[in-house]
Design a protein around this nucleic acid. Structure first.
Lengths: 177, 177
DNA sequence: ATCGTTGCAAACGTTTTGCATAAGG
DNA sequence: CCTTATGCAAAACGTTTGCAACGAT
């Protein structure tokens, strides 16, 4: 993936130098800088997970990620709690973006990946990305009017995608908002 | 969740006439129409919950609602499962709007209450409403471009509210999301 | 007399925790 | 060494379900 210029406003002030160099850093480099700045350690599990996560270009949840990892006997096995702990750390480091869908957490790349929002089909559960610069403008405008410090936003349009709309009558799936 | 064969038809499909008269109907009237159209029954529990819910003008989650209800010995006691079942029915009836926040479902009035979106403070967990017509325009435009049938949307701006920003140094709370 | 509804208890799926051991710096 | 990280098992959390009894139409 190309390093698109999207230095998202950074979670916090702890890592001042990051913003300026972020475009040229690999996710690994940035992660290591984050770990150092916090006195955290880079373990084999974390390295392996970072690799797996950045091989994905789609959104995923913890279970989907775990399903793709080696199972309990195998070399690179990572336990479920560690996956959760590490995903949280990736979010803290600004590498991943998290949002909630149908009661569980979804993750997606937040580094070297253009900012976007989603359409969510309640029939097939598909997430469709779209980009729209106006949204960020509106967001910042609204926030300014409320003296609110924006860290992030989520904009999800729920409904039915074209495909599902066509095979309407067949659909068996339950809608959940 | 067992696959109920019942097509949980979207709120709108079944009840075409509702839209035109909705402004003049009370929530109760609309709810009763909804129940009739589906062959469902109006019980004391449902009536009482509708009353309680429409006394609130804020967002709430199931627990907050339950906390305000009579406890197990008392006259109007409603069990936890029934609260959940009924809230879902209110959503189906178009009376409430549901969205997710920090892993739990939040509800707010969706009937006789202007459409709006939210700012969410990750320090104090406060939800601040705002209205912005452009958002709906953008939403519909994006959806049209993707041949997507919109049912709803959620737009939440996350960050830190003015109050919390002022007492920054004191707050020790962990940010989540 | 139906058939939806209730309350209970128990299950559910996702995420988190306590703790003893392992391992990075 | 010191402290963070890991894996395990178990808990926590919000929510849902199976079931027998109840109650609305």
């Amino acid at each position: 993936m190309p390093d698109s210029p999207s230095p998202k406003t950074e979670p916090m002030a702890k890592t001042e130098p990051l913003a300026s160099v972020s475009v040229s850093m690999t996710p690994l480099a940035r992660y290591e800088e984050f770990l150092q700045s916090r006195g955290l350690r880079n373990t084999n599990q974390k390295k392996y997970l970072l690799e797996q996560v950045f091989n994905r270009h789609e959104h995923f949840d913890a279970d989907q990620l775990i399903d793709q990892l080696p199972s309990k006997g195998s070399p690179n096995y990572v336990s479920r709690p560690t996956v959760y702990r590490t995903l949280r750390e990736f979010v803290d480091a600004g590498l991943l973006h998290r949002f909630e869908l149908d009661g569980r957490s979804m993750y997606e790349l937040n580094y070297g990946y253009p900012e976007h929002d989603h359409l969510y089909c309640s029939k097939c559960r598909k997430l469709i990305e779209f980009t729209c610069e106006e949204i960020v403008k509106i967001r910042d405008e609204v926030a300014r009017a409320h003296r609110f410090r924006v860290r992030d936003h989520r904009f999800i349009i729920q409904g039915v995608c074209d495909e599902c709309a066509k095979k309407r009558s067949l659909g068996r799936r339950q809608d959940r908002v």
